[in-house]
């Protein structure tokens, strides 16, 4: 009985995190983006600096009519948002935020593999949405999504492999146990490549060609309204949380910090994740969208060689110095 309670509690906590953290990131994005553009952002919803804006948005989405285009493939069209959203929920289960058994949803032996594998499934949602909408813009968006995923999955995997080599394990908890501060300069290239490739997989600006509104309206999500559209948006922000959490765990040492690592490890994890989420928003505000061919070229001619170099460096250091 105690086990059941324990599992239920963990699932509940992960679910609550899954529902609240993306909203926090979204609200931060509203405000940070506004101030970076000399605006104020939402100011009214909820009274204090518009803190409840996203809740208001949610209510609005829930009230909207759920439209399925006449020519669309109904079943797949309706299923797509769930396919896009669920993988991130699963990934969140495996990310440790503090030392010990108590601070991770589920300890997995092959954590890195699990996380990358399941994150790759999320893109199926965009593909299904793009194809099933019976809309040429959606189809183009789906195609671009697929092309982008294929080219950016590789550097992401390679850099994650580099960390796994350094730690001698593919378990996320194991990697954190093995972490030393000098891994930071050692794996910095890998960290940058991983983060950038992750941004591209999430289709965040400046890699948002698949949803480029000035060209293809909203890519694969053009035909969606109401709650299903909200689910896609939630998937994007959950993706930010997951990506930042993963980068923190793999490259920035998770719960390790200059001090207070014993009791306050989870604070360090959350702090690093928050800083990374801020960087995601910052990059969105600063840079213009990359063109489709630039996107592909960037991955194949820069990120892949860099990640291969990182693997070589990791191997050399591992063999020679350790």
């Amino acid at each position: 009985m105690n086990d059941v309670l324990d599992v239920a509690l963990r699932l509940l906590v992960v679910f609550v995190v899954f529902l609240t953290f993306p909203l926090i990131v979204g609200q931060t994005e509203h405000k940070v983006m506004a101030h970076m553009q000399g605006r104020l952002g939402p100011m009214y919803a909820g009274g204090f600096h518009g803190w409840a804006q996203l809740i208001a948005d949610g209510v609005k989405f829930a009230q909207k009519e759920d439209v399925v285009p006449a020519g669309a493939d109904r079943r797949i069209f309706q299923l797509a948002p769930a396919v896009a959203l669920l993988p991130y929920l699963l990934v969140l289960l495996a990310i440790p935020i503090g030392p010990g058994e108590g601070a991770v949803g589920q300890v997995l032996d092959a954590g890195v593999f699990f996380v990358l594998a399941v994150m790759g499934v999320g893109v199926l949602g965009s593909l299904m949405a793009g194809w099933a909408s019976a809309n040429k813009f959606s189809l183009l968006g789906g195609l671009r999504t697929a092309a982008q995923l294929l080219s950016y999955e590789l550097p992401m995997l390679l850099t994650a492999a580099s960390v796994a080599m350094a730690a001698g394990t593919v378990s996320l908890v194991g990697i954190l146990d093995a972490f030393e501060w000098w891994w930071l300069p050692w794996q910095i290239t890998g960290a940058l490549v991983f983060f950038i490739a992750g941004l591209a997989e999430l289709q965040r600006p400046p890699f948002d060609m698949p949803v480029a509104d000035s060209e293809i309206i909203f890519g694969a999500y053009t035909e969606y309204t109401g709650l299903r559209f909200a689910l896609f948006l939630l998937a994007e922000y959950a993706g930010i949380v997951v990506l930042c959490g993963l980068t923190t765990v793999l490259f920035l040492g998770g719960w390790h910090g200059p001090w207070g690592a014993d009791g306050l490890g989870w604070v360090w994890t959350l702090l690093k994740t928050a800083v990374l989420a801020f960087v995601v928003i910052w990059l969105r505000v600063t840079y213009p969208r990359m063109r489709e061919d630039q996107l592909q070229k960037f991955s194949w001619t820069l990120l892949v060689p860099l990640s291969l170099a990182q693997i070589a460096l990791t191997g050399v250091v591992k063999v020679v110095f350790l």
Binding site: V32, H35, M36, Q37, R39, L40, V285, T286, Y287
Partner: peptide
């Protein structure tokens, strides 16, 4: 150039925004 862009947005964020809450 990329770094300059980041600096510009960060500096703007720390300044007072020009929006008048009408």
């Amino acid at each position: 150039g990329l770094a300059k862009g980041l600096a510009v947005t960060l500096r703007t964020m720390t300044k007072k925004s020009v929006t008048a809450p009408y």
